[in-house]
Design a protein around this nucleic acid. Structure first.
Lengths: 133, 133
DNA sequence: ACTACTCCGACTGAAACAGTAGGATAACAT
DNA sequence: ATGTTATCCTACTGTTTCAGTCGGAGTAGT
C-alpha cells in the first residue's frame, strides 16, 4: 500500500471540510489554497469523492462542497481504497482486489504478507475522519 | 509499500537458492524455469542482489549463483527496500527514505501512518529467508 | 446579465514497470 | 586451441501510472 498524492490530497480536503461548519458550502478554491493543492487537480479528486458518496456539492454562486456523512462515519481505509486500491502489499493477499501473483506459491511468505495486510486493514478501517481532526 | 514484480522475483530466486545445496553453483536458467521468471529480467534482479552482497557468482561453465550469507541472516525487509524502497505508506514516516509530503501537517494522520510503518518494518525485519523456507 | 461556482472530457510530460536484445567476458571441457 | 556454458554490461522498448493542465459547458444566486 503506497499512498499517492491523490490520496493525500483527498484526506487533506476531507480534514478541511471536517473542520468547517456543518452547514457551510466550502468552495474548492479555499481548500486548494489552504492546503496547497493544485485547484484543477483537486477537482478530479473531489469529483470522485462525490461519486463515492463522501461529499455532496452545490453548484453556482456560494456553492461548494460539504461532507455527506458525519466524520465518524468515514474511514481512512475506504478513502485510500478508492484512490490507491488494495491496502495489501501484494494482490494475492488482498480481500477486495485479489489477483494471482508469482509469490503465491510461497505459503510462508504469503502468511507474513497476509498478516501485514490484516494489520493495515484493521487499523485503517478502525480510524475515521473524526479521529484525525 | 506496494511490492513490484521485481521484489517478488527476487524473493522467489532467494528461496530457490536457499533450498539448493550450500556448495552448489546454481545457474540462472534453472531458477528462471523453476520459478517461471523471464530469464533476461532475472539477470538484472540477481545482479542487484550481487552488488548488495546477498549473492555471490561464479562465471563460466558450471558457474552460477549461491547465497553469500546464511538464510537466517537475510531479512525480507532489506530485500524489499533494495527493490521497492520505503516500507512506509508515505515517505514522511519513512526512516531510511524520508521525504516531505503534503500530509505531514496532519499530525494525527501521521501518527496512524507511522504506526503502520513501524509494524511493517518490525515484522519484515524480524522475518528472514530461513523463516520462509 | 453577470459572477462564482461546479462539472466533464481530453490532453500532456515525466517517470516507473516489466521486460528484450546484443554482445563482451570468463571459466571449464575436450 | 577451441567450443560451450555461463555471467556481465549497456542500451533500448512498449505500456501504464502519476500528477497535473486546459477549455469549455452547466448552474445557481445577485
Amino acid at each position: 500500500m503506497k499512498l499517492t498524492r491523490r490520496s493525500e490530497y483527498a484526506l487533506l480536503a476531507l480534514t478541511y471540510l471536517g473542520r468547517a461548519a456543518t452547514e457551510e458550502w466550502v468552495p474548492l478554491g479555499r481548500i486548494a489554497e489552504a492546503q496547497a493543492i493544485p485547484l484543477r487537480y483537486l477537482e478530479h479528486i473531489v469529483a470522485a469523492m462525490c461519486r463515492a458518496g463522501y461529499l455532496v456539492s452545490s453548484k453556482g454562486q456560494h456553492g461548494g462542497y460539504r461532507l455527506a456523512r458525519k466524520p465518524s462515519e468515514i474511514t481512512i481505509a475506504e478513502v485510500i481504497r478508492l484512490f490507491d486500491g488494495a491496502l495489501a502489499p501484494v494482490e494475492s493477499v488482498s480481500k477486495y482486489f485479489y489477483q494471482a501473483t508469482p509469490i503465491e506459491r510461497e505459503t510462508k511468505m504469503l502468511a507474513v504478507l497476509g498478516n501485514i495486510r490484516d494489520y493495515v486493514a484493521r487499523t485503517l478501517e478502525g480510524t475515521t475522519l473524526a479521529d484525525i481532526l
